[in-house]
């Protein structure tokens, strides 16, 4: 039923430039994750103790939110491959909506930490927790901006089954944002 154009060539979905960006971003996050992991190895007790103050429910909920939003984006790509711009727009809107839910939950979490007097200088764990999650937070915003741009173009009929590289480009970036959170959540919230 759907034989997408770009899949036969074995090329990466979307614009190749976004992939260079994605690889670079993954490298940044990878370095950041390993810095956390090895800083923890030298301060196991401090990290374990401080981690108890995290709100794991928020973290898990946000994981589900991002997974779901990624799923919506998959559906948006499938829709445009069926040449259905309208459905593509709806799925994109849903994905962006989930992105906003993520931001709201995260902001409650941040507010909670700040009101507890926690800052970047509290200790190494919280330095990492705040830095990593804030850095990721900014990526969620950027991803939403990209998805919104795709949405507006899709709404004005800018994409079709034959030509929708832009949708795949935005989708790939959004999945990357999801991907790094999938590692961030167990690393910072669970492993101790």
């Amino acid at each position: 039923m759907d034989t997408p154009l770009h899949d036969d060539t074995g090329a990466l979905p979307g614009d190749f430039a976004i992939w260079i960006f994605i690889f670079a971003e993954l490298l940044v996050f990878g370095v950041f994750f390993l810095a956390y992991a090895f800083a923890r190895a030298n301060n196991v007790e401090l990290f374990n103790e401080s981690q108890l103050q995290l709100d794991r429910i928020s973290g898990a909920a946000n994981t589900l939110v991002l997974i779901t939003s990624s799923y919506f984006v998959v559906r948006a790509v499938a829709a445009i491959r069926d040449d259905d711009s309208r459905r593509c727009v709806h799925w994109l809107a849903a994905a962006i909506g989930m992105g906003s839910v993520f931001l709201v939950i995260k902001m409650f979490e941040f507010a909670d930490k700040f009101s507890a007097g926690i800052s970047l200088s509290t200790n190494t764990f919280f330095m990492f927790y705040l830095s990593l999650t804030f850095f990721h937070f900014m990526h969620v915003i950027l991803g939403m901006v990209i998805l919104a741009a795709v949405l507006f173009k899709a709404r004005s009929g800018g994409y079709s089954a034959a030509s929708h590289i832009g949708v795949e480009t935005g989708a790939s970036y959004w999945h990357m944002v999801d991907l790094v959170w999938l590692i961030l959540f167990p690393l910072v919230y669970v492993i101790h």
Binding site: D7, L12, A171, H175
Partner: peptide, 10 residues
């Protein structure tokens, strides 16, 4: 996510 969402399986 890589294989099925990003679609890298193909």
């Amino acid at each position: 996510v890589v294989d099925h969402f990003m679609g890298l399986k193909r």
